[in-house]
Design a binder for these strands. Structure first.
Lengths: 200, 200
DNA sequence: GGAAAAGATTGACGTAGGTTAAGACTTATT
DNA sequence: AATAAGTCTTAACCTACGTCAATCTTTTCC
């Protein structure tokens, strides 16, 4: 992917949320650095300070937390046009609660803390953009939380594969289980039971 | 509560997040209307459009969703210095997913959609304020979500009463259960079991 | 003050999903 | 090709929590 291509994609995304002229779009893009990551690369790591945040152009990331017992819990999968970051850590430069790991080859536009502060200073309109984006993230998580406490895993599974078709091919089963908040063994059994239900 | 008192409280809150001079603070406060609500009053209602959002000065609200089976699920309790709103509904003027109901007498500074748009237009610094506030809400919910899928109810219960001491006196048991994502019967049994653990 | 409503507790029983452990199947690595 | 590492499935058993129903306590409100 070239820098030009990346800027086109990012500009399109920006224009979907706020109105900016070509010149400003270009200037904003320049704050971001284009980078490629390989499978298993880490973008930020639980326990360290997240010094950057990124916009996914292509590929796939998982954002997860590892609990005291060593179990992984996936907060979300970041496809293209999603953001990867640990907001608390990035904004306040505190220890990250989450890690981000690439699940395949992926292109990212990234920015560090200093540049982001500068970006927001130079382009106050970006405050609005980020306000809107974070609002959307929050709304999505509110509904996901509600779904999680009010339904069983099978319903959440059906919701997921309907909302993100093809995710089963992209993401290993045990990470989907983690996203659903259950263990891989449970997902496996659940799928078998669902099959029985369909056949008979 | 007088308008002056309300503005003092709100100004203090605002100053904790962004720096504004006295004059601007005053002007911003004027966008908000001071209102008192009684127990069981509704601020916005699931299925309707949330035409306003509010800042809680005193008292207590619950924000909840009622599922298809009629069961209530508490998203959060809003104490003083918290916001009550259904962001998706308010921002996009779509049907609300949540309702807000007062759990006791409460004072609120509220603003409707038109005034908020005007506020953000007149004071772009408010975009920054709301960006920061929403970021905090999102971070809190991320951790709560993680806690919910990675621990059992008893741990969440201990976390809650430690983080919000006295909440047991303010909020009926079955609503605390709902907040924890379990049924009142389960909370009751859980507490009994915990008592046994302490005694022996 | 007394009826009615709302809330809390208890017990018996059912079930989704956790735990543990083993085996099969796939994908990397040499 | 051979070994190792990662992933998926299955099965037996266990536990936290849901379900249903009865009883008791507290609050609300004419």
């Amino acid at each position: 992917m070239t820098k030009i291509e990346a800027h086109v994609l990012f500009s399109k995304y920006l224009s979907n949320h706020i109105s900016l002229d070509e010149k400003h779009l270009q200037a904003i893009c320049e704050f971001y650095e284009l980078k490629q990551y390989s499978k298993k690369d880490i973008f930020f790591k639980q326990g360290s300070i997240a010094c950057k945040e990124g916009f996914v152009l292509s590929g796939l990331w998982k954002i997860f937390h590892r609990d005291i017992k060593g179990a992984e819990h996936v907060l979300y999968f970041a496809f293209s046009n999603w953001w990867i970051g640990d907001m608390a850590s990035f904004s306040n430069q505190t220890e990250a609660f989450f890690s981000a790991e690439a699940l395949e080859k992926t292109w990212v536009l990234e920015i560090d803390k200093h540049k982001k502060d500068k970006l927001l200073q130079d382009f106050p309109a970006m405050e609005r953009l980020f306000r809107i984006i974070i609002e959307k993230h929050l709304v999505v998580l509110q509904k996901r939380f509600l779904l999680t406490i009010s339904t069983q895993a099978s319903e959440r599974y059906l919701e997921l594969i309907q909302r993100a078709p093809g995710i089963e091919q992209l993401v290993p089963q045990h990470q989907i289980a983690s996203y659903l908040g259950i263990l891989p063994e449970s997902l496996s059994r659940m799928k078998k039971n669902m099959m029985k239900g369909i056949k008979n």
